[in-house]
């Protein structure tokens, strides 16, 4: 009798603990989002999207930083995702079982979780030092390197999900793999690949460390890719650690902008993925 009661109590205790753990996790998320929203909204003003980052003690906005982040993220994706998609295609179509593919998959997973500051150091050494100055293009390259593993992984997984029947039918009609891939596989895996792109964008738009030594920062409006360019994460880094109220408000507002963007992208990716799985499930 005693033993049974003990087991029941033990069961109850551990289940309670796990419920508490879940609530702590949710509470943290709620706390962070709440802080972000309350401070971020306080920092929001009509100037946010129309003025540049101000000198300390003055009002201003985040326009140059938002533009810079948008440009470098876009460039990063433009450079990185084709490489990721093509490489993922290779792994899915041509290199199913070769040693090279195993190695590449492995390396890719390592790159996926590697500290982004290392990538920043790498791009500093081979681009910034060679060019002699910081630049937006260096920043975009660092972001591209971070985007490749995400797109590669998703592309390979999505291509592998395409029913083998479709590939075989295409081959039976006499199509080379390139034709099959372009005309059959890519359209079939379309939403999956787009999910990968969204995840990559979400990943790189929040990165600070790689931009610290590549794009640096710029307090003015600049569209020159060959010069330092303002960007939201580094601006937030600088402004949050300053004692100026206006700057701190802008930092919170910028943080809110980044988080909302990334959350929207992540949720969209999820929704897309769910739609994709529903399609598969219904036997399309």
């Amino acid at each position: 009798m005693n033993r049974r009661l003990f087991r029941k109590v033990k069961n109850g205790v551990f289940l309670l603990l796990s419920m508490i753990a879940t609530m702590i996790g949710l509470a943290c998320l709620a706390a962070i989002l709440w802080t972000l929203i309350s401070h971020g909204f306080a920092g929001m003003s009509s100037h946010l999207f129309t003025q540049m980052t101000p000198p300390p003690g003055s009002q201003g906005g985040l326009l140059n930083a938002i533009y810079g982040s948008a440009v470098m993220t876009l460039l990063g994706i433009l450079i990185g995702s084709p490489i990721g998609v093509l490489a993922g295609t290779y792994l899915a179509e041509y290199g199913r079982n070769s040693k090279l593919s195993t190695a590449i998959r492995f390396i890719n997973d390592v790159l996926l979780s590697a500290p982004s500051i290392i990538i920043g150091l790498f791009v500093y050494e081979i681009v910034v030092v060679r060019m002699g100055h910081f630049s937006a293009i260096a920043g975009a390259l660092a972001l591209a390197i971070l985007a490749i593993p995400v797109t590669l992984r998703t592309t390979e997984d999505m291509l592998n999900l395409v029913p083998i029947g479709m590939k075989d039918s295409s081959a039976a009609l006499g199509a080379y793999p390139w034709r099959t891939t372009l005309s059959v596989l890519y359209p079939a895996a379309r939403s999956g690949i787009v999910t990968g792109l969204l995840l990559a964008i979400a990943r790189i738009s929040g990165e600070t460390a790689p931009l610290l030594f590549t794009a640096l920062n710029n307090q003015f409006w600049s569209t020159n890719l060959n010069a330092p360019m303002a960007n939201l994460p580094v601006v937030i880094f600088q402004f949050a650690l300053s004692p100026y109220k206006e700057w701190q408000d802008l930092a919170w507002a910028g943080a809110l902008i980044i988080t909302v963007t990334i959350l929207v992208l992540s949720i969209s990716a999820r929704v897309l993925l769910a739609m994709l799985q529903n399609e598969r499930g219904s036997g399309r």
Binding site: P55, P56, S58, W221, T223, A227
Partner: peptide
């Protein structure tokens, strides 16, 4: 339409408040 920054400088935080005011 926007002018680009021509001079770049970096360094001391000691004079930064006045340098920033001057630059503006």
């Amino acid at each position: 339409s926007a002018a680009a920054a021509d001079i770049s400088g970096a360094g001391a935080t000691f004079p930064y408040p006045i340098y920033a005011k001057w630059a503006d």
